[in-house]
């Protein structure tokens, strides 16, 4: 199987879907002649032309809303947000229009659109450019929210998102784009709403998504050396949550650590904890632990930035707490 970078996997998904369906177009800042701020759309302008790979003005609300309108009448837009921090300007169009059109029209309209771009910390960018905002969008009925960690999932889930008849919010990552992994060629579609056990284990379940997945895998490797068998469950889709997969893993390991790049209050992890406590309370041998970004704004200074985010040592410590093996 060929090895591709995350950005190449996305590029492949876009190209394949645009080839398959002329209703699909890509719009965003720098997606055309510049070939993408993170090179996700490399080469696509030459291949598909300027009506399908569209360099937009810096008007996130404007081109976001324009594309919602195009989706209402049968096109299938992919809207690239240079980062999700900037997409906050488009939130009205995503939340008040895209997520509610089906409902407000009593089922007359559908809005097949994908909003995608990098979320989370990019590295030394301070507070306005470093937010993990997926919890904000997961809050809204009418949206689907996905956050693939691996190149293969990035390809398969973007293809599924483009084919979906609902608005899909896709979180990628500046620090994910250059990561490599095996990616199946051609028709490879990963269904939305399905979590994936990326590593089997028996002592504890580590639940995560997006870039934190790599810290979790690193932690699991370290823990294995100490004889602790950690299962890593990659949620991949954050709305709807795959309750079945979460509960199955909890029933197997009886201990849970949830790792989230964003803030703890009203985070996705809080909802996962709620599912577990209400549906698998008797299966728990210890309180559910959470590792999250600290409840502060992100700093530029390297040491402060690192201290703000989850990492493998923090995850290892949380696992040991869940196993009552602190200080062991």
């Amino acid at each position: 199987m060929p090895e591709l970078m995350y950005r190449e996997a996305l590029n492949q998904a876009l190209a394949e879907e645009m080839e398959r369906d002329a209703n699909v177009y890509l719009i965003g800042e720098e997606v055309g002649r510049y070939n993408g701020a993170f090179k996700v759309s490399q080469g696509l302008l030459d291949r598909f032309g300027s009506a399908r790979i569209i360099d937009a003005p810096i008007s996130e609300l404007g081109f976001g809303g324009l594309s919602v309108g195009a989706a209402m009448v049968g096109l299938r837009p992919v809207v690239e947000m240079m980062t999700w921090n900037f997409a906050i300007l488009a939130m009205d169009q995503i939340v008040n229009n895209a997520a509610k059109l089906r409902h407000m029209s009593g089922g007359q309209l559908r809005c097949p659109i994908v909003f995608r771009g990098p979320g989370g910390a990019g590295g030394r960018l301070s507070s306005q450019h470093s937010q993990a905002l997926e919890a904000n969008y997961a809050h809204f009925p009418g949206l689907k929210v996905i956050a693939p960690a691996t190149p293969a999932d990035a390809k398969g889930m973007l293809k599924a998102a483009i084919r979906d008849d609902n608005p899909v919010i896709m979180f990628e990552g500046e620090r994910l784009y250059a990561l490599k992994g095996e990616v199946p060629e051609g028709e490879y579609v990963v269904p939305l709403g399905k979590a994936d056990v990326k590593r089997e284990g028996t002592d504890v379940t580590i639940i995560t998504w997006s870039r934190m997945y790599y810290f979790c895998m690193q932690a699991a490797e370290e823990l294995a050396k100490e004889g602790i068998s950690a299962e890593v469950l990659d949620l991949r889709t954050l709305r709807p949550l795959d309750e079945e997969a979460i509960l199955a893993s909890v029933r197997k390991t009886n201990r849970v650590v949830i790792v989230e790049e964003g803030w703890a209050l009203a985070g996705i992890g809080a909802s996962v904890v709620d599912i577990i406590q209400s549906k698998a309370f008797d299966d728990l041998d210890a309180p559910v632990e959470r590792v999250t970004g600290l409840d502060v704004n992100m700093s530029y200074a390297a040491n402060l930035e690192n201290a703000t985010q989850p990492d493998a040592p923090k995850i290892i410590a949380a696992v040991k707490k869940a196993l009552y093996r602190q200080g062991a």
Binding site: L66, A70, A71, V73, N96
Partner: peptide
């Protein structure tokens, strides 16, 4: 909303329908 008669809705956020209309026109042009 009455899509049969090509009336694509009343919108409650002031100005929120303005980009949508451009997108519908974009689709016609496309």
């Amino acid at each position: 909303f009455d899509i049969e008669h090509h009336f694509y809705g009343g919108y409650g956020i002031v100005g929120g329908q303005i980009p949508l209309a451009a997108g519908m026109a974009f689709a016609s042009r496309y």
